[in-house]
Design a protein around this nucleic acid. Structure first.
Lengths: 177, 177
DNA sequence: GACGAAGTAGACAGACCGGTCTATTTATAT
DNA sequence: ATATAAATAGACCGGTCTGTCTACTTCGTC
């Protein structure tokens, strides 16, 4: 489900597709997820969110500094995007734009995911000596930049936005750390 | 149609909705757009694309410098987003992520739109004295940043990403112009 | 083995989708 | 006025969607 949300989004991912992929039955789905499709999507978003948080933390933890970690993060996103014929960008971006007032739980889950990502980046920056205020601002900025780059790279089927973003973020972080 | 694409995207916008809004009939739609839904979406994307290009050009033309023009552009996007309860972000972002290999015409149209926007920004920057190479890079970067900010602002229902992006872009452009 | 709960299976309903089709109206040219 | 083209109207088709429903199987406990 997480992969389907990443590639096709919430609306375009049908429960029938999920059932076919998992070779489970409709009854099982609605037994384990009484909330139906939205509850399933919320769970998938949370899984994707945690996966990225763990990845961010591990990259910052494996040093040597914030600049190198950021470089690896952007490269990782770029590799995933390019390695999937530009179908796997941000795991939640499509759902984030699709989620309207009819899917409040999904909206809320996505807000939490983005907030968690920003905190993870911010924590990584402060762990390498950056001041808390600068770290929060820069983390927010990095998240914006990466999301924008993933969007444009996917749309234009080119990794140029990722490269630009990488060099730019490395410079910005290098100046302040 | 352009508004529907902006708010709900390609998949979630049904031809029936369009017909209801325009009070036209199904027959008329497929007479004027033999390509069906995708052809209609392509036309809408092109209209939105031109609208933004004209806006970018006019803001850069009304001076006094690149920094002020950029500030007005970001503010304009932020105002549109906030004034619509965070439903009207980038007019094509949602469609850009949705468009897969099944909608090649839509994909291509969106690529053209993004390319046009970048060129418009780049032209605006060079018109105010920036070197061509720097202008292209900064235009690309600004587009990435604005798209990312619109995405995150819409998802989190907060204008903070727009403000951050504005000050950041103003600083980046101010340094190089 | 008996029995109740937990879980699975898949048919079904009601609604909506995009696209095609024929019939009808409107405009244009002679 | 009439013939032809342009345009509109809306019923209709096959397909797909989400969610509900009942029947069946599996499992743990006595």
């Amino acid at each position: 489900m997480a992969v389907c949300l990443q590639e096709h989004g919430y609306r375009s991912t049908s429960t029938t597709q999920i059932l076919a992929k998992t070779s489970l039955s409709r009854g099982s789905l609605y037994f384990h997820f009484p909330g139906g499709k939205e509850a399933l999507a919320v769970a998938a978003v949370q899984v994707s969110g945690r996966r990225i948080v763990n990845w961010i933390s591990s990259e910052f933890a494996s040093g040597p500094d914030s600049v190198a970690a950021t470089s690896r993060l952007v490269d990782g996103f770029a590799a995933a995007l390019g390695g999937s014929q530009f179908t796997k960008g941000c795991p939640v971006a499509l759902s984030a734009l699709e989620a309207g007032d009819q899917e409040p739980a999904l909206q809320s889950a996505i807000q939490t995911v983005y907030s968690d990502w920003q905190r993870a980046i911010s924590a990584g920056l402060t762990a390498h000596g950056m001041g808390s205020e600068d770290a929060q601002r820069l983390a927010h900025l990095a998240l914006i930049q990466i999301e924008g780059a993933l969007l444009l790279a996917r749309a234009t089927k080119s990794l140029t936005p990722m490269q630009l973003t990488k060099t730019f973020l490395m410079e910005a972080i290098g100046q302040r750390s």
